[in-house]
Design a binder for these strands. Structure first.
Length: 846
RNA sequence: GCCCGAGUGGCGGAAUUGGUAUACGCGCACGACUUAAAAUCGUGUCUCGUAAGGGAUGUGGGUUCGAUUCCCACCUCGGGCACCA
């Protein structure tokens, strides 16, 4: 047998796999050729990773981590008899390519082609079992035709609408900026957002934008999380983002104008008796409407202008709270009937609740603001902790918790929870309040004044207004332009192409103009997993038949829960996508479900996350730091199998971990060790060398169990650790049977597919190891006959004894007390208690 | 500021439901093999102590027979915060 040569082996098998198309998913294959029932369709497994953005820098070692993880799961599923779909594509619209085009004048289409070619070549060199026959690209007109088509369905159902929104605007470059392109810089008067390119202070501008009404789905997006199998922190992230709160809307009447009222939303109506002022968001419409009555209007106007240009994160930061009173305006607290002042402050956000809050001593932000501006405060909630109460009463400390009401008229003595419904009922009987549920979630701003995105398929007609592009005219293709800069008026570069812009109205055939806004990058990625089911379909985004097969299991999947009707079996992606992308695609999917275009109410049954790979020393890998590792170099020097094993071994899959080129050698040594064992096995070619009961066979079966279970939990690092232990023992052993070695190769094959395939074929197998059967472990062989029991005295380990697996508690305790060390330690002391934990320990308390 | 995650040897990390802290790997030291080197194999490797024994899982408290694990407070780092993907 020849020496292990990763270069030869890896390219050889990649070519063979590709030629035979062994990783191509088949639509509705039969169970097996010999299956009696003709209708028996093979069960499917649909594993998904987030398709990459093909950046100009090429792949870096962080990209493959999730691909390898899901590849291991997909490969295991194939051996378990599933028909596996594991697809990939390119999420290729977006800012970096466009900015590159602006800078260099190169056509983004050509740049995208070049970048995705590089990515494809690099990913292929890693031996990931992707089905390349279903590759998609969001910038392909054949793909974005359907992204546009789905938008038209939103429009048809009234879920796409236009609204005035503020955008970041650079007055020097005359272009709209993404939040990312606005950097915070210190100026003379504090922090300010400036343009990343030119450093000019960024302004906010009002602009008509296309919106998608995701808030119409807020309740379902929240509730249906109960029925999906996401990691708990992902569900929590989604829930926090949607931000459902149940509370009340309360009206504060304006003293001077009893017909006018300011509505506030609160979840803590129990604190209303301590409310001494109300606070409006600077953008609140009341301020403009009532400006003639505001005595200090000039100052107020100046304040509002300042605040509007501050980034939102900045505005809500604790240290930066500012405010101004609306002099001459007072409202009435409906509970106390007292007149109270009205303030404006930057920490109140216009798009949450009603854009106004009532303020009292039981909210930290209100409390701090009142202290800062000497606004009177009152307290009305008594803490459970009496010692704290003095300080709270004296306003030395802010108490935000729940408690018992006082200073609250007829509600005195009730707990916060008891008081809330009663106060709402009381106030609503005077029509000053109503129960209300609000969401933090806001509608989705869907317009971009950019070039490199899907054109929004709408035509503006002078007479007919907004007219959707007829479906037969889709796709509305992106025209070529000379200049990728947005126009001076803040429109997309498309606005300059009069030939493209000026069209006939599809309805009245009169003069009309195309919409020149494009869609955000999120659009194409909101439905891409559906396209993989039927990637080449020209008539629909995917056929119902294919969607039904790939999204709904023939038998209940272990991934499925509660009222969930199916979806992608397992979707793994980055932690950084667990709110936005995940929520957006759930929204699109639910919408399509309502139109009966997809068969399931949720897109993904199971969602897990992977951590990032950081540079050496735990800092971010970035071009500017010069610490980016290119997988090409690793594949060349150590091989794809080594890279795969190393990336899975380096740390827990869901956590970020620092790269270490020095440590790769450990993975390589492990692979070489397995190779050497292969040489030994081939030399002796012993099919029955080991006794069925030998310690090595027992270890093999324990390892099969451990690896099988660890893969399901994505604990790839401990799976590899256990295989390393097995390899060390196999190498030490005088003889390893072919049969046992093959089982080891099979469980290792998802991690190191090339070298295991080579060894498999050297052992005389004709078919691919990737199409063999996942080995089963023998329960009888993994049970230990003798068990080590630790003896503790007062919780400290003092000795250990070995007992038979079936030994009784009495007998073990007796042995423990007879132990020499134990006798020495308990001499002259009373044994108070003995705690026995089965198969683990005896703790003697003295 | 708000939400989520993490903090364990020189380094990456392991540790079922609260039950032997430091598995596995890297590095380092010593030894075997070799004319030599590489590769490989073996031994050792948290810390103080000759030992008996003590101490240590970001910090400080608490619950428990027993805490890396549960509770409270705090510190540090990473991710997200709606136009980056």
């Amino acid at each position: 047998m020849k020496e292990y040569n990763h270069l030869k082996i890896e390219s050889k098998w990649q070519t063979i796999w590709d030629k035979n198309g062994i990783y191509y998913a088949k639509d509705f294959p039969r169970q097996s050729a010999s299956s009696l029932s003709k209708s028996a369709i093979k069960p499917k497994f649909y594993g998904l990773i987030e398709f990459p953005y093909p950046s100009g820098d090429g792949l870096h070692v962080g990209h493959p981590r999730p691909y390898i993880g899901m590849d291991i799961i997909s490969r295991k599923r194939r051996l378990e008899g599933f028909n596996v779909l594991y697809p990939i594509g390119w999420d290729a619209f977006g800012l970096p390519t466009e900015n590159f085009a602006i800078k260099t004048g190169k056509d983004p289409r050509i740049v995208t082609k070049k970048n995705s070619d590089t990515f494809r070549r690099q990913i292929k060199s890693l031996g990931i079992s992707f089905d390349w026959s279903r590759e998609i690209n969001t910038t392909d007109p054949k793909y974005y035709k359907w992204t546009q088509w789905i938008f038209l369905q939103f429009l048809k159902k009234g879920l796409a609408y236009k609204a005035k929104m503020t955008i970041n605007w650079c007055p020097k470059d005359k272009i709209g900026l993404a939040n990312e392109e606005v950097v915070t810089r210190s100026t003379g008067s504090g922090q300010a957002g400036v343009c990343e390119r030119c450093g000019t202070a960024v302004e906010k501008r009002e602009k008509e934008q296309w919106m998608l009404a995701i808030t119409k789905y807020a309740d379902r997006l929240y509730k249906d999380l109960d029925d999906v199998n996401y990691l708990p922190q992902i569900k929590l992230g989604q829930r926090n983002w949607i931000g459902k709160s149940e509370g009340a809307e309360i009206e504060f009447k304006v003293s001077a104008r009893q017909d006018l009222a300011i509505k506030v939303f609160t979840t803590r109506v129990d604190t209303i008796f301590s409310c001494t002022f109300i606070v409006l968001a600077p953008e609140h419409s009341f301020i403009q409407e009532y400006k003639n009555s505001i005595l200090n209007w000039n100052e107020v106007e100046k304040y509002i202008k300042e605040v509007k240009n501050r980034p939102e994160v900045e505005r809500t930061a604790e240290s930066n709270k500012t405010g101004i009173e609306l002099k001459g305006v007072r409202v009435i607290n409906p509970a106390t009937k007292e007149e109270i002042p009205v303030w404006v402050s930057d920490f109140v956000l216009v798009h949450y609740g009603t854009g106004a809050v009532f303020a009292d001593a039981h909210d930290k932000r209100d409390f701090d603001m009142a202290k800062k501006y000497n606004i009177p405060l009152k307290v009305s909630i008594k803490s459970k902790d009496e010692s704290l109460f003095e300080k709270i009463k004296n306003m030395e400390e802010c108490y935000e918790g729940e408690g018992v009401l006082f200073n609250s008229k007829q509600f005195d003595g009730l707990t916060s929870a008891e008081a809330r419904p009663k106060i709402i009922d009381w106030l609503s009987s005077e029509s000053a309040a109503s129960r209300k549920t609000t969401f933090k979630l806001r509608d989705w701003i869907f317009s971009r004044q950019r070039y490199w995105g899907e054109p929004i398929p709408v035509i503006h007609c002078q007479d007919c207004g907004v007219v959707p592009v007829p479906e037969k005219d889709l796709p509305v293709e992106l025209p070529k332009v000379k200049n990728y800069q947005p126009t001076d008026s803040g429109e997309s570069p498309l606005a300059n192409i009069s030939k493209w812009v000026n069209v006939k109205c599809p309805k009245c055939l009169g003069k009309a103009k195309r919409e020149t806004d494009t869609m955000p990058n999120w659009a194409g990625s909101s439905w891409y997993y559906l396209r993989y089911a039927d990637a080449k379909n020209n008539k629909e985004f995917a056929s119902k038949k294919n969607l039904k097969y790939w999204l709904t299991s023939p038998q209940p999947s272990p991934e499925r829960r509660g009222g969930n009707t199916g979806g992608v079996d397992w979707y793994n992606g980055g932690n950084e996508h667990t709110t936005l992308h995940l929520l957006y695609s759930r929204f699109w999917h639910k919408f399509l479900f309502d139109l009966k275009l997809v068969p399931t109410n949720e897109p993904y049954m199971k969602r897990t996350s992977h951590g990032m790979i950081l540079g050496e020393g735990g800092v971010k890998m970035s071009k500017s730091l010069g610490n980016v590792i290119n997988p090409d170099d690793i594949v060349k020097t150590y091989g794809a199998d080594t890279l795969r094993v190393y990336e899975m071994f380096m740390g827990p899959f869901d956590q970020s971990v620092a790269w270490s080129t020095e440590s790769i050698i450990g993975a390589r040594r492990f692979i070489e060790k397995v190779w050497r064992i292969g040489e030994k096995v081939l030399k002796f070619n012993n099919s029955s060398g080991m006794s069925k009961n030998s310690p090595l066979v027992r270890l093999l079966h324990k390892t099969i169990k451990k690896v099988s279970e660890d893969i399901e939990g994505m604990n790839f690092n401990t799976a590899i650790s256990s295989m390393m232990i097995l390899a060390t023992e196999m190498e030490k052993a005088e003889n390893v049977s072919v049969e046992d070695y093959k089982k080891f190769l099979q469980v290792l094959s998802p991690f190191a597919p090339h070298m295991t395939e080579e060894l498999w074929s050297l052992l005389g197998e004709k078919d691919s190891i990737n199409l063999s059967n996942w080995p089963k472990w023998d329960e009888n062989l993994i049970k230990d006959e003798e068990i080590k029991i630790v003896i503790q005295i007062n919780g400290k380990v003092r000795a250990e004894i070995f007992v038979q697996a079936d030994e009784t508690e009495e007998s073990i305790k007796k042995k423990a007390l007879e132990n020499e060390t134990v006798v020495r330690h308990i001499a002259g002391k009373d044994v108070k208690k003995m705690i026995y934990v089965k198969n683990r320990l005896v703790n003697i308390v003295i």
